[in-house]
């Protein structure tokens, strides 16, 4: 009899800590580096404190993936608890971070053959966080590795994410602007509607002027995918919850929302998205 599947992710999944604890999700933190200070994403620095620091910082902090050893430690711990348990390790888009790479190396470093499936989510924040949560729920219910991976893939097709940033500056400076680079330095206050493409690269789906129009455009885009189907929604924000709340209200009105949750964007994603970012993650139920 095989043990229950174990779920590993990294801190950029932006899963609230109480959910992670309840579902037994092992989370490896990325790092954010302010000058000489290195912090573990949301572990040794609280987002609230971090965003205040970010607002005052003259140069942007840098970020770093976990080291392979940090992953192999977690894998080893899980294997020590129950050597027969398969591990599914789901991570931030490899196009945005070397986190997936580190996890892959960690696997190769393990002495014994272990059943570890490492997945490049090609997504970020709760975009893959919601897959991790679903995987962990299924693992708790004793579902097989294969069923869980299938469900994760289905969820990828059944969910969409959009985000709005105050300014593209952080994305550009941090080198993560991807295909939205065309909107840099515009005179007009153009708001690109941002998402991640199939390769997990930042892309601008559309452009509008003004934040109200941007929200309305997001509603339209989501309508195209979800219509009046029952959906579950997670809203996320970095520093100003109000904009995300405004968007959340619109979504409540316009969609068949069965559940709406809130989560704070962590420090690593927050470094690159910047202050005043709001995001919506919607999935078909």
């Amino acid at each position: 009899m095989l043990g229950k599947v174990r779920i590993v992710t990294d801190s950029t999944a932006d899963i609230p800590s109480e959910v992670r604890e309840r579902l037994g999700i092992s989370t490896v933190p990325l790092k954010v580096i302010f000058g000489e200070e290195t912090y573990l994403d949301t572990v040794t620095i609280d987002p609230e404190v971090f965003y205040e620091k970010l607002a005052q910082a003259s140069t942007l902090p840098t970020t770093s993936q976990p080291s392979p050893v940090e992953f192999s430690d977690v894998y080893q711990r899980l294997l020590a608890e129950d050597a027969g348990s398969p591990i599914i390790s789901i991570h931030l888009s490899a196009a945005l971070s070397g986190t997936y790479q580190s996890a892959v190396i960690a696997q190769s470093m393990l002495e014994e053959e272990a059943d570890i499936t490492i997945i490049d989510s090609k997504s970020a924040s709760y975009g893959f966080g919601l897959r991790v949560v679903r995987a962990a729920e299924m693992a708790q219910a004793g579902e097989s590795k294969e069923r869980i991976i299938e469900a994760i893939e289905q969820l990828e097709r059944d969910s969409r994410l959009f985000f709005l940033v105050d300014s593209l500056e952080n994305l550009q400076k941090g080198g993560r602007i991807g295909k939205a680079s065309a909107f840099i330095g515009s005179i007009l206050n153009i708001k690109p509607i941002l998402s991640l493409d199939q390769e997990g690269i930042v892309t601008a789906v559309d452009k509008v002027r003004g934040s109200k129009k941007a929200m309305l455009r997001i509603i339209e885009l989501l309508k195209q995918s979800f219509g009046d189907e029952p959906v579950s929604v997670t809203m996320a924000w970095t520093s100003h919850r109000q904009t995300a709340e405004e968007l959340g209200e619109l979504i409540q009105r316009e969609f068949n929302v069965q559940a709406m949750d809130w989560t704070r964007v962590g420090t690593v994603i927050g470094t690159h998205a910047g202050l005043g970012t709001s995001a919506v993650f919607m999935r078909r139920l």
């Binding site: 993936q65 080291s67 392979p68 050893v69 940090e70 070397g98 190396i105």
Partner: peptide, 15 residues
Amino acid sequence: LLMGARGNSGVILSQ
């Protein structure tokens, strides 16, 4: 090096 590996180049260095 493995414990402290950071960034792609750091990870490659450790390898």
